[in-house]
Nucleic acid binder design. Structure first.
Lengths: 109, 109
DNA sequence: AATTAATATCGTAATATTGCAATATAAAAT
DNA sequence: ATTTTATATTGCAATATTACGATATTAATT
């Protein structure tokens, strides 16, 4: 099939998994780290930095924008991308909330 | 293409993205949360709980095992799955290391 | 030994993702 | 107005993922 059956999970589970899925690509991790290091960047910077086609980079940026973790603002003929700090911090909280669920000492393993 | 060009990223980026990718499916999030709540479980519990076919659950468990976040031990004719606490905590640290990268105040957005 | 029970693996169909060339769009420079 | 520059979108081919039925496999039960 290839289709994920989202109707059998909670909204929280679906949303959280979506976040993780978007972040789960090395190009998108590399893009985020580049933006963090450079403070901001334009699409072409990433094309040179990562060696992917411009169309490919643009697509990855679109996915990152879709979860709100980056923001792009038009500056003349280019678009300046930067981290959306609020969302970034919110994600960190969500991850910690997930990982802070107490792991009880297992009896079988 | 469909193939991810891993050779243009660092090992850290590829590894971290792989983790996120495995966690980026609602069934696998639901499985982890179920194991946490129940402390441990067997495959059939999850089949009933999630309403996916046994083969599908088994496949998801395999992927979770592949990143080490769960462990399965044979108990008679069933397999008892539980969280691997060390790996769980290690992942949390990795996520925090990633998110703690200082986000400089952006000048463009 | 045959049956039952629990899980894993294989094969396959349906769908999703990745990556890129080609093209479109939009703003600045000439 | 035309060209240049930067980005977005579209269409497509290759590959990956998801889900499941059918079929092992393995251990306990009868």
């Amino acid at each position: 099939m290839g289709i994920t059956k989202t109707d059998m999970y909670t909204d929280d589970q679906n949303k959280f998994a979506s976040l993780l899925k978007v972040l789960g690509h090395p190009a998108r991790i590399a893009i985020l780290q580049y933006i963090i290091n450079q403070e901001k960047c334009i699409c072409n910077d990433l094309v040179e930095e990562l060696g992917l086609a411009q169309a490919t980079i643009s697509q990855h940026l679109k996915e990152l924008k879709s979860i709100g973790i980056i923001q792009g603002s038009i500056e003349g003929k280019s678009v300046c991308y930067c981290i959306e700090e609020k969302v970034w911090n919110q994600f960190q909280e969500e991850f910690n909330a997930f990982f802070n669920q107490a792991v009880k000492v297992n009896q079988c393993c």
